[in-house]
Nucleic acid binder design. Sequence first.
DNA 1: TTGGTATATCGGGAAAAGTCGATATATTTG
DNA 2: CAAATATATCGACTTTTCCCGATATACCAA
Lengths: 83, 83
Amino acid sequence: MLEWLKEPEINFPDQLQHAGFEHGVCVGQIQAKAGLTQSTVSEYLSILQRAGFIEAKRVGQWTYYKRNEGAFEALSKLIQSNL
Amino acid sequence: MLEWLKEPEINFPDQLQHAGFEHGVCVGQIQAKAGLTQSTVSEYLSILQRAGFIEAKRVGQWTYYKRNEGAFEALSKLIQSNL
DNA sequence: TTGGTATATCGGGAAAAGTCGATATATTTG
DNA sequence: CAAATATATCGACTTTTCCCGATATACCAA
């Protein structure tokens, strides 16, 4: 999922029909691609959010998730320096 | 454990009594510091080895483990580029 | 306000990971 | 070879993680 969110236009072309990608990709799109249930994907995304890897933005009935690139940079550096 | 192995001299001073650190740190030393059973530590180290993060060197009855810095560098870069 | 759609949360069962004691293997020493 | 020491492997149990269906919540539209 994290990789998918790097290129929303390529990985979630269907979303164009009701929105752009300014705020990220909505849960339903990710769920369809993941092939897991809605509840599983929702929970998974919220875990990634709490971990800081993605950010959520509620717009109407949709919740859009997008990557927080800073977190990946930070993790990469942490592995370099601390680990 | 991976952090401990960055500075063997500091984290495993007892090992000096029977060996240096050329080949790394032996299982018993790591086990004592970890506070887990011998079998758990042995299995854990072999998992880390299979994953490529550490290398094993058998010398007599001892097995010494040391970090494979390249693996950490690679992981760090992988997070930067692929993830 | 009622019904429809999107997402979140909850409780539970299945799968995986963590940890242990017992035992096997390898090596050294007497 | 026998005993002692260090490590590895095995089987079982416990804990955690994964994933689901059911249900709750939030928002929108008629």
